[in-house]
Every structure is written in C-alpha cells, then in structure tokens.
Design a protein around this nucleic acid. Structure first.
Lengths: 189, 189
DNA sequence: CCTACCGATCGGTAGG
DNA sequence: CCTACCGATCGGTAGG
C-alpha cells in the first residue's frame, strides 16, 4: 500500500517544521520535498496553517489515546507514570510529528485552533497530574508539587528529537530505562 | 542610568524571539516595540541576524562563566551539579535572553556563527558531563549514562520560561529546591 | 532618526 | 497538477 500524496506532504511538513520551524518553512520548500509545484499543494491542504493544524490535532489525540489506555489498565500510580514517560520517549524518537505538535510549533496555530489545541493539552496535563496526586496520596511518591513534577517530566525528554539517532548503539529500550531510572529514583546513590 | 537604545532593542528582540520565534518577528515588529522606524534599527545593529547572534553569544558566555565559577569552588560533584541546575533555573526565570539562546532560536544562526555557538555549547556540555563522570567515580551518583543524564537535566527546566510568573505564590527558591529534589533524589518514596 | 523605496520572497488564486 | 500571476510583507539601503 502506497502512501498517499497527502500523507507524504504531511510527513515532509512535520520534518521541515521540526528542522527549520514552521515560519521558516515555505510552501515552496515543502513542494520541492515531495516533487510538486507549490500551487499543487493546495489540492491536498487548503492552507499552510491547515497542515500545521492537522499535525497538532492528530498528535494531541495520540497523547490522549495513550493516556486513555494507561488509565484503563489496573496498576499503581507509579506504574502509570512510568508507562506515560515511556509513551513520551517512544513518540519523541519514533514519530517526528509528535514533536512538532507537543514542543514548539503549536505556538503558530491560529485561533480558534490554538485554543482548541490548548484545551486538549490541558486535559492531558490534568489527567497526568491526577495520577501524581493519586501516587502521593497512596504514599508511592514524595509529597512534591504535582504541577512542577508534571512539567519537569514532560520536558525531561525534550532533547531526544534532535539527538537520538535510530540504529545507534543506544536502543530505545535502553534510553527509556535510563531516563525512567533518573526520574523515578534520582541520581544520587 | 538610562538603558541605551541598543540595550532596549536587544531586550525587546529577546522577548519577541521567545514569544513568537525569530522568523516570525519582523524588524517592523521590533521597531514598533522600541518606538522607532524599522530603518532606524540599522543604526544600532547591522542586521536582524546580528541581533540574534549577539543574544546567543552573550548567553553562551554567561553559561560558561557560571560553569567556571562552579569549577573554581571546592565541592563534591553533587554540590557542583546542584549549583548548575540552580543556575539553569535562575537564568530561565530571570533572563529572557538566556532562553532564546539556549533553547531554540540559536537554530536560526547563520554560518560561521552557528558553528561558533555550537562549539561554546559543546564545551559547556563536556564540562558538565565531566562533573557527572567524577560523581560516578566518587560513588556519589548511580552509574548512569553521563550523556543521557546531562541532556535530561538541561531539558528538565525548559518549561519554566513560558510557565513561571514572577511574583506568583511560588518563589524562585521554592522552584529550585523542588526541581533539585526531583532530579537528585527521584520521585519514588 | 526619518521618508521613500528596492528586489526578493511569501501564501495563495485563476484558469486550464 | 502545471503555468502564470497577485498583493502583501520581508530585510535592507539611499539620501538627507
């Protein structure tokens, strides 16, 4: 099954947005990447803003789907948080679109899409923080500030997207385990 | 002592670059911010690229100066790493230019300045990682991968710049202590 | 420091 | 899906 031209554009856009940023990526850059003229892109997407919007909204849904799955499983709060950190690591190194959406380029969304995106994101954060609160109440976690902890965990994996080289010596599994160890157990011996 | 017009431009640029990104900030935006015409900016900076370059280079030097101070003090590796994490937190919440430089906008530097910046950054990272190696050898830290740990620590504070509201209930000191606790001792009770 | 203006490039459209 | 083209905006310059 071939990838549709629309999918090719979508993926090339995510790559360019990650590497150069949304504003620095022109429709002519994007067209060249997929072997079209700039004007032909408009047969697949109504506007440049729409390409970004699709990437951001799809990925907000992906994170929320991951959250839904974690919530559905029985497990302690620390098992749930561990699964979510693994989710963030995996998406960061496997899927370039997730990074575009979650990190920086969502800033360039226009209203009303910006508000819609932020609402999905807020929902994800709230559910993440609820698990932290649950873990503290159960005596699994130290009594940290749930807001600070959640943002620290989200950011802690933000360097992966421009550092991790797939197929290198470090496997995704090793990376997940190492990062999980640092965040859950700390650095001090 | 008044701030010079050049300093005003420099600071307004850092704020705009952080909020909208380098590419999305026009010289006309920047001019309006400081009450000038766009063409008048060129009496203070030779180009838009030069404004970014000054911000990035100054801040690379600031991080290296912080590193130098930490290295000069006697202390265990974990004291040094703690001081450096505090440095990152402080710069993130106190100085908008540091964020522009360290996080994302340095990507828009042009050669040969991009290479020069990356070299300073690499030097900082190497010295940071050397302290981690020293801490592991001394039995202070768990035997983690120094590269992974260093990047995890750098990123862990990257959310602060668009979240922290000075004068809010949470003081800078509380924030530093909380983040240090999470990273050094871990979350699990 | 301003007015006036430049060539280049942008996102996007018309028409086929 | 292409050619041809649009108005707007960009970084930057000339001249005073």
């Amino acid at each position: 099954m071939e990838k549709s031209k629309k999918d090719q554009i979508y993926e090339a856009a995510a790559r360019l947005f990650r590497d150069k940023g949304y504003q620095a990526t022109s429709m002519r850059d994007l067209a060249k990447e997929v072997g079209l003229q700039a004007s032909s892109l408009y047969n697949h997407f109504p506007s440049k803003a729409d390409v970004l919007r699709e990437i951001c909204m799809n990925n907000a849904q992906r994170f929320l789907a991951g959250m839904h799955e974690v919530e559905a499983h029985e497990g302690s709060a620390s098992e749930k948080i561990s699964s979510l950190i693994r989710l963030h690591v995996q998406l960061s190194i496997e899927d370039v679109t997730s990074v575009t959406a979650f990190n920086d380029e969502w800033r360039h969304l226009e209203e009303p899409h910006l508000s819609a995106f932020l609402q999905l994101r807020k929902n994800y954060e709230n559910r993440f923080q609820a698990i932290i609160v649950e873990g503290i109440a159960a005596g699994e976690f130290k009594p940290v500030n749930p807001l600070i902890l959640s943002y620290t965990l989200f950011s802690a994996v933000r360097w992966l997207y421009d550092w991790y080289q797939p197929g290198k010596k470090i496997t995704a599994k090793m990376l997940e385990d190492e990062i999980l160890g640092i965040l859950m157990e700390g650095v001090r011996k």
